[in-house]
Amino acid sequence: MERTAEVFDLPGDLVAGLPRVEITGCRELRMENHRGILAYGEDEIHISGGKMILKVRGAHLELKAMNAGELLITGEIAGVDFS
């Protein structure tokens, strides 16, 4: 589905349910279509994105809000890694 969305130039988050990550400045990260939190800490939060894992690094990180499809992380975000 991810490949199909890429071929047909369609938004992957809608067609394939891929995670959509939106970072506002360096203090707020909003993620849609997540699959849950894998690890949680003030310095690093690991979030499952299905086939990938999103690692948010920083300081004083806090899971501000979360529901089945979206979550919001605030704090001093230093970087985001995909693995």
């Binding site: 849950g36 939190i37 949680y40 806090e62 979360m66 529901n67």
Partner: peptide, 20 residues
Amino acid sequence: PERFLNLCAQRGVLFWGVEW
């Protein structure tokens, strides 16, 4: 405990003020 957060999010239990 992360599994607890995920389960709450899936079941619609609103939470805030998460502190590790």
